[in-house]
Simulated scan of single mutants.
Amino acid sequence: MMVKYRKGQFVKVKVTGIQPYGAFVETPDHVEGLIHISEVMNDYIHNLNVFLSVGQTVKAKILDVAADGKLNLTLKENDYFRRQERKKEKKSVLDEISQDQSIGFESLRQKLPEWLAKAEQL
């Protein structure tokens, strides 16, 4: 029995292949689809293999159904990938150092108590 897929529907898919531009997936009833690399999360992804692997099953949202029945999917509404984005939002205190600041051992010693206090708040 062939399931009729529609835009906005969530579906579990299995990753069947990974390319630099996205992941090929398949539904349980063998309908093929693609999750473009830009649809995994809002952050830049250099290597899709860090987030997906062949054989992995993920919950994806259908963005579009092509005339030939193939699915265009997104993971941006998947809770797991949203959590991954939030982890990346936490930045190191070293990111706050501007390039024009003089950095040396004495400067680091002066800033260390402030950085430790900030780290404890996270």
Rank of each mutant, 00 (worst) to 15 (best):
E120C: 10
Y44G: 09
M41Y: 08
N72E: 12
R6K: 12
D68I: 02
L34T: 05
L94D: 05
V54S: 04
D68S: 04
T27Y: 01
L63V: 05
S102K: 11
K70N: 09
D68C: 02
V31N: 02
Q19K: 14
Q56M: 12
E120M: 14
Q84V: 15
V15I: 13
G104K: 01
R6H: 11
N78R: 04
K87W: 10
K4L: 09
Q110F: 04
E106M: 09
E106T: 08
V3F: 05
K7V: 08
A60L: 03
E32G: 06
H30N: 09
K70E: 08
I45S: 06
Q9A: 04
S107H: 08
N78I: 05
Q101M: 10
K7D: 06
V65L: 01
I37F: 07
N72P: 07
Q121T: 09
R82V: 13
N72R: 12
Y5K: 00
S102L: 11
K76I: 12
I35L: 10
I18N: 02
L34S: 02
T57D: 08
T57E: 13
Q99L: 15
E26I: 11
E85C: 04
E120L: 14
V31L: 02
G104P: 02
K7F: 05
V31D: 01
K12V: 12
L116M: 07
G17A: 07
G69T: 00
V58Y: 01
A117D: 02
F24A: 05
L63K: 10
K88Q: 14
H30E: 14
F51Q: 07
P113F: 00
A67E: 12
P28N: 09
E39N: 12
V93Q: 04
L48P: 06
L108H: 06
G104N: 14
Y5L: 00
V50E: 15
D100Q: 13
Q121G: 05
G8K: 06
A117G: 01
L75K: 03
F51V: 08
K76S: 07
R82A: 13
D64S: 12
I45A: 07
S98K: 13
R86F: 14
K7I: 08
G22W: 04
Q56Y: 11
I45Y: 06
R82S: 11
M41L: 15
I35R: 06
T74R: 03
F105N: 11
K14C: 10
L73R: 01
Q99A: 15
K4F: 03
D95Q: 13
V93K: 03
L63M: 10
I35Y: 03
H46K: 14
